[in-house]
Design a protein around this nucleic acid. Structure first.
Lengths: 217, 217
DNA sequence: AACATCCTGTGACATACATCACAAACTAAG
DNA sequence: CTTAGTTTGTGATGTATGTCACAGGATGTT
């Protein structure tokens, strides 16, 4: 039976080796709040009150963008254990209509860090600064990848990337989703997804079932 | 007749009011290198040797993305006086094939800061840290805007944004470009641009000439 | 002035995907 | 078991933009 702060210390060692400074680890252990989310649960939506940065401990978080007017959607990237969401800084400052949405793709645990510490630790702890900067860099690169996909690639390539991203992120070759959900993530029509998946099944790249796509090979 | 370092100090006051600390201003004045680029000149390309972060003093810089294989291109955003290019951090680490390109859209002056200072100032100077973080935030937001445009909008809206962005950035309602160059920036065919511009001319939104588009209204 | 080159305009057709319409297969609830 | 709801499959048709082909105007060069 361990105290939550001891638990957090252990987690930091396992999942956030970049956070090296003892003092920082201790502060996080005291201040950080362990939070659990169920699969499908919304973590942050349009300019929500969540003024904290999440350190992801376990599970998988889906970050997506909504079209202000037409209810369209687009998956930006997935976050896993060891990641943080640098958009959180930015998110809180965005106007409500054009927000990023963050939801748990599967059961997920995070350590929540209140924003004010995030900022003050930047100058206090070298390893925190590096962690935050690295995270920003990663996110910028993810965004560039998204832009590449939608600007330069057809649906077939995008689907391939999408399936790979999800199976890798969840560690499960079987994806439990409807075609409609996938279509929303990719911002294309459900019919286009159905037809493309059918083709992939005929080439033996996937096996299809109701609410279920299994990536083969 | 002033020394370059005095000149830089003056520039900092004018264009970078966020950089408040005296010590920081002095370091920049000593270390920073004033560099001029002509219109059209390439500032940074595929994993170039440029290991510095530019503070933009005057002019306008075009940041774009190239498709690795097919020679396609896409304008990401424009930078003006007071801006910096946060992708520079990242850029140096990217593999050559999938790089960001930075070029002067008009005669442009920058202060180049060698990367090593960029990093060490983060913990040393509060206002530098804020400046860098703000710049990252801005860039992430720009990227989100780009994603919105290409994912959710048609060419007509994109063209509108594009024309506005360029005229605002250069402060000139007349744009001196060929349709082909615009098509490259927007990653569409030249014919699509020509046809759309023709329509806009018929509604009296632009006036067209050879190598020249004037935004009316 | 003659010529070559660059830029723009425009028709014809191709392609990827959206939209509409509906049927068939599966699942859950009574 | 029946029925209603959800998910998937598929044809027909629409739309935006790409691609190809070429002509005419603008500009620069000798």
């Amino acid at each position: 039976m361990s105290l939550p702060s001891e638990k957090i210390q252990k987690i930091l060692h396992q999942n956030f080796p970049q956070i090296t400074e003892k003092g920082l680890q201790e502060e996080i252990a005291i201040i950080g709040k362990l939070m659990d989310f169920e699969a499908g649960e919304l973590i942050m939506d349009y300019g929500s009150y969540v003024r904290m940065v999440p350190l992801i401990v376990k599970g998988c978080i889906k970050v997506s963008r909504e079209d202000s007017e037409e209810g369209k959607e687009l998956l930006l990237y997935l976050l896993n254990a060891g990641d943080t969401c640098s958009m959180s800084f930015t998110c809180c400052m965005l106007d409500k209509k054009s927000a990023i949405r963050t939801e748990a793709l599967e059961a997920t645990t995070i350590i929540g860090i209140p924003l004010k510490y995030v900022d003050s630790w930047m100058t206090k702890y070298q390893s925190w600064k590096n962690f935050v900067m690295m995270s920003y860099d990663n996110r910028l690169l993810e965004m560039v990848k998204v832009i590449d996909s939608i600007a330069f690639k057809g649906l077939d390539k995008r689907m391939e990337q999408y399936l790979k991203a999800i199976t890798e992120s969840t560690g499960n070759t079987t994806i439990s989703m409807t075609h409609q959900q996938m279509a929303d993530d990719l911002n294309v029509s459900r019919e286009a997804v159905s037809r493309l998946l059918k083709k992939l099944e005929q080439i033996n790249l996937v096996r299809l079932g109701r609410n279920q796509i299994t990536l083969l090979g």
